[in-house]
Amino acid sequence: MSTNYTYDYIIKYIIIGDTGVGKSCLLLQFTDRRFQPAHDLTIGVEFGARFVDVEGKKIKLQIWDTAGQESFRSITRSYYRGAAGALLVYDITRRETFDHLLIWLEDARQHSNSNTTIMLIGNKSDLESKRAVSYAEGEAFAQQHGLFFMETSAKTADNVEESFVDTAKDIYEKIKQGVFDVSNESNGIKVGGHLQPKTLPLNTDNGNNCC
């Protein structure tokens, strides 16, 4: 069933932010609904996908999870352009990851589509006792720069679903308003064809869709 699942839209996301803030854990919690305390650091770019429902539409989120360290910046930059949604993540227990947000934001604004929806995420909200950045600060930063904002915990799954889905809702809203040119896949959105799953030949060329 799932392999033949058709979609109304494919939306591309990118997850960015300092190393160690929990980007890969957020992705895993969202795609697999589990938290893996022991895992390897991301080298380069990893990938995940999941379907969500927005206003009855089947939307496939294709999510590129990027490495946080500067040495990988030249690679991760090339992913901005094709992304309609960006999750910018910091760690509420590590002040410096919040302090670096401006650098990330500049990078994102410079390299991404101007219509890209950006969600600011303060992760590790379960570690309240170690908190180094207040909720209000995060919220103020988001307001100031016109971003959505949420605090999440990849460990407890708190707000993880919402952060991905709310971003999708905003993008879908933009699609309806005609903000995105959906005929151009480089905007990070692909409209589903009316494919009949059972008659789909094995080697159908799906255009330039790499995933």
Binding site: I43, I75, D205, N208, C210
Partner: peptide, 15 residues
């Protein structure tokens, strides 16, 4: 054709 170049799939294996 799937936009898959080594930079995308092989970075960690190379590094």
């Amino acid at each position: 054709s799937k936009n898959l170049t080594a930079e995308i799939y092989a970075l960690s294996s190379v590094l």
